[in-house]
Design a protein around this nucleic acid. Sequence first.
DNA 1: CGAGAGTCCTGAAGGC
DNA 2: TGCCTTCAGGACTCTC
Length: 275
Amino acid sequence: MPELPEVETTRLGLLSAVIGKRVSGVILRDWRLRWPIPRNLDALLVGRTVLGLARRGKYLLWDVESSHGGGFLLCHLGMSGSMFTVRNGVAPIKHDHVDIVLGGDTIVRYHDPRRFGAMLWISGATPTHPLLDQLGPEPMAADFNGSRLFARSRGRAISVKQFIMDGHTVVGVGNIYASESLFDAGIRPTTAAGRISETRYGSLASSIKATLAKAIAAGGSSLRDYVGADGESGYFQLAAQVYGREGEPCHTCRRPVRAIRQGQRSTFFCSRCQT
DNA sequence: CGAGAGTCCTGAAGGC
DNA sequence: TGCCTTCAGGACTCTC
């Protein structure tokens, strides 16, 4: 699934194809995502113009004439979703659940084998929704920093890795980038969040920003289900330091990378470089 | 309230 | 080849 860099890459790839374009049709082949897609999606979208495409965490927010009687289309790619453009007329394949036809000649196609994603409608001029209400800061924003991490972690027994993957702490840090950022900051993922100093949280915030920025610059990293917004295989070699490298030598000290499980998710770290 | 487990679903990979 | 188990990038929603 797309982590934040992949979602941002998707957004950037879709922008020119959707902004200012009028929706001419909607094809709903399977509405059974994490929550049901509104069955009247066509009535909500057709005839309206897309005025914006924003991202909040891993959610994509389409502004569909929100200030003129429309609203927002809220999309999440879940674990295996992708959203990309194809020429109108290109036949769908298995798991192509939704087509949004724009201007008659372009389709934005939603593909999601596991159907953990979401496509919901928010009526009105402001994108308020329970899924968005409690989200933490954007990792690349100035208000996400070490002081904030430190303040929010006091008294918390949860491991620092699970702490930074919690969307209330900061949005968009998924399983891969959590391991990578903690390696970059030299912090052991099992350490209790409440026992890490403000100085170290400063390093961690910087590492999260740097790790995500690098991945966004590379166009999203490489996961087998991921398809870029242009429909091409968005397959970039992920320059992982530790993720998926169990038993292989640490790039810094050559000690074998260790793999453990935390909260039913895989964690990778170097037991020498991360203390 | 926090922490941990369970849940949705398909598909790929590995063991036998 | 086939059957079975395990695992996968998320994150909401329970229970204790």
